[in-house]
């Protein structure tokens, strides 16, 4: 997946130029991915402790 690099030369990250709905969708997607990742880790540990 292409990662956009749209900051300005002052070093400030950008992203505010995208529509709000677009940004909220990204927020939900990253949030869901993070929760899923932790869920997988928790399940693996559970399986290890109680096979």
């Amino acid at each position: 997946m292409a990662l956009k690099s749209s900051g300005d030369p002052s070093g400030e990250p950008a992203g505010d130029d995208a529509p709000l709905l677009h940004r909220l969708a990204w927020m939900a997607a990253i949030w869901l991915g993070s929760v899923t990742a932790l869920g997988i880790i928790a399940y693996v540990i559970r399986a290890w402790l109680n096979p």
Binding site: K4, G15, D16, A18, W26, M27, I30, A37, L38
Partner: peptide, 24 residues
């Protein structure tokens, strides 16, 4: 821990250029 900490940690770490400053 799952839904506030870990969930939003992903946005915090990787989301600035996607969600903008205020949502971040």
């Amino acid at each position: 821990a799952f839904f506030l900490e870990a969930g939003f940690l992903g946005v915090m770490l990787f989301g600035m250029s996607r969600v903008g400053k205020k949502l971040h």
